[in-house]
């Protein structure tokens, strides 16, 4: 009889031991016990999200070369639900698509540029739809093409060159994200947007 009790006790032991081990895991955390902090927080920035940038490098239809890269900078922070995801000042690159200097016969200078990307903590945020001006509504459909005005009024115009296109450093522009971008930021880096 004692043997049967001993066997039953032996069989019951692992179950008791398991129950004791699992109990603390199920128990709710009491006061003073904090959950581990969330280290990473991924935010998806959607494609076609408008961003305000500025062209930080002076460009000219006479000196610019097709394919040349130039510097751009984020003017206003990219925010989601009031949280700054990419702060103002993030840098990136644009590219010259077309450049033609002014020529005789009143042919004006031409310049077409595109925004390529912004960089933030090692992540490239691809851009498209560059438009001149700070209008973020998307109504400004001027496009990122500038042609200088040309004056052709007489035979003498053959010897008159049209104007060159000058884009001064710091010129505001808008662009859009060309695809969804996943930004992973540590919780400490997320800041509340400061509103003046």
């Amino acid at each position: 009889m004692k043997r049967y009790f001993f066997c039953a006790w032996l069989l019951a032991m692992p179950a008791i031991a398991l129950g004791q081990e699992s109990a603390p895991a199920i128990a709710p955390a009491g006061p003073g016990i904090s959950q581990p902090p969330v280290v990473d927080d991924a935010v998806i920035l959607p494609a076609m999200l408008p961003v305000s940038i500025e062209i930080t490098e002076a460009l000219n239809s006479k000196t610019s070369k097709i394919g040349q890269l130039f510097d751009i900078r984020l003017r206003a922070p990219i925010t989601v639900d009031g949280k700054v995801i990419i702060p103002a000042g993030a840098t990136g690159k644009g590219q010259v698509i077309h450049a033609a200097r002014a020529r005789a016969a009143g042919k004006a200078g031409e310049l077409i540029i595109a925004a390529r990307y912004l960089e933030h903590e090692g992540v490239r945020v691809p851009l498209r739809s560059l438009k001149y001006g700070a209008d973020m509504t998307g109504d400004n459909n001027a496009g990122a093409a500038i042609v200088a005005s040309a004056a052709i009024s007489s035979a003498l115009a053959l010897f008159i060159t049209g104007g060159q296109v000058d884009i001064p450093a710091g010129m505001p522009a808008t662009a859009k994200l060309s695809q969804d971008v996943r930004i992973i930021q540590s919780g400490s880096n997320l800041q509340e947007e400061v509103k003046p």
């Binding site: 698509i97 042919k107 496009g143 093409a145 500038i146 053959l158």
Partner: peptide
């Protein structure tokens, strides 16, 4: 040279400039 993006509308103007023998068509953004 142009780079066309989906969903966008671009405008190109043709003008005739002065040439030595004949006028010179010019396409500009």
């Amino acid at each position: 040279n142009m780079e066309i993006e989906s969903g966008e509308t671009y405008y190109v103007k043709c003008g005739i400039g002065m040439g030595v023998v004949a006028g010179r068509p010019n396409i500009a953004p």
